[in-house]
């Protein structure tokens, strides 16, 4: 018990260190640049304590729960040897985690107001809602597609750089023909899709698969799933913009 407490405090201290830069930056700008007093300092201290505690718990749970389940499922699928089921699982994981992602919902809503203001869609609530939902499902489909392709790549051992660089070429070409109002949203949607719970799970899945399959290096083949997940939404959102146009 005592030893566990020591480990916990060490983790707590680590989280404090992770948070220190933010505190320093905010304090510096508040006192030195903007020259203002800190508003309701009590609330801020409570909030900081919560953040530190939360980060500690999260990292604890990560190594206990998320990493092991990701790897054990990857190994079970590899043993089962059914590529179709594995790809279905990968697609579901990508689609399911993205469609409900709060930051994606927020971005989609904002994008709908942009489109309405730009006169791309009619300025009614209904049109905006259907546009935002369309965007959300497009991105979710893109992420599901990306994780499946990424898993297929691990199984087959394709080198990642050709796929990613090929994807970049597609993005650049699409940028030329896609309507200009969708480009900013498309570029951003690539980065917001991967949430805090999806990332560890998907990483563990990739590394687990690469270590379960003979001839794959977990370092070279295991990573890269998230890279796909942040590339394909750009392409799919630009296609969506072109279709709407």
């Amino acid at each position: 018990m005592n030893q566990q407490l020591i480990v916990f405090f060490k983790a707590l201290l680590g989280s404090c260190k992770d948070l220190l830069p933010i505190v320093l930056v905010i304090a510096f700008f508040q006192f030195v640049v903007l020259q203002q007093a800190m508003p309701n300092i009590g609330d801020i201290l409570v909030g900081l304590a919560l953040v530190v505690l939360g980060l500690t718990f999260f990292i604890y749970g990560l190594e206990m729960g998320l990493f092991p389940i990701g790897e054990s499922m990857a190994q079970a699928f590899a043993k089962k040897g059914s590529i179709n089921w594995l790809l279905t699982f990968a697609f579901c994981l990508g689609f399911g985690t993205t469609v409900a992602e709060p930051s994606l919902i927020a971005v989609a809503k904002e994008a709908a107001t942009v489109a309405a203001a730009g006169g791309m869609i009619s300025n009614t609530l209904e049109a905006q809602l259907s546009y935002a939902n369309g965007l959300r499902y497009t991105v979710a489909f893109a992420v599901g597609f990306a994780i499946s392709i990424g898993v297929l790549r691990i199984i087959r051992g394709w080198p990642i750089q050709y796929l990613i660089l090929g994807g970049y070429v597609v993005v650049v070409l699409m940028t030329i023909i896609a309507p200009s109002w969708i480009i900013g949203i498309a570029y951003d949607s690539g980065a917001v899709t991967t949430s805090t719970i999806t990332v560890p799970l998907v990483t563990a899945l990739g590394v687990g698969l690469a270590s379960a399959i003979k001839g794959r290096n977990p370092m070279i083949d295991g990573f890269g799933l998230i890279a796909f997940a942040s590339l394909t939404p750009m392409v799919f959102v630009m296609i969506y913009g072109m279709v709407i146009n």
């Binding site: 505690l53 939360g54 999260f58 990292i59 729960g65």
Partner: peptide
């Protein structure tokens, strides 16, 4: 399952603290 619960609690505290302080 304990790991999952820890992740949930941790993420909740983390988000709450961010909303309150930062």
């Amino acid at each position: 399952s304990f790991g999952f619960i820890y992740v949930l609690i941790g993420l909740t505290l983390f988000l709450l603290g961010l909303e309150k302080a930062l």
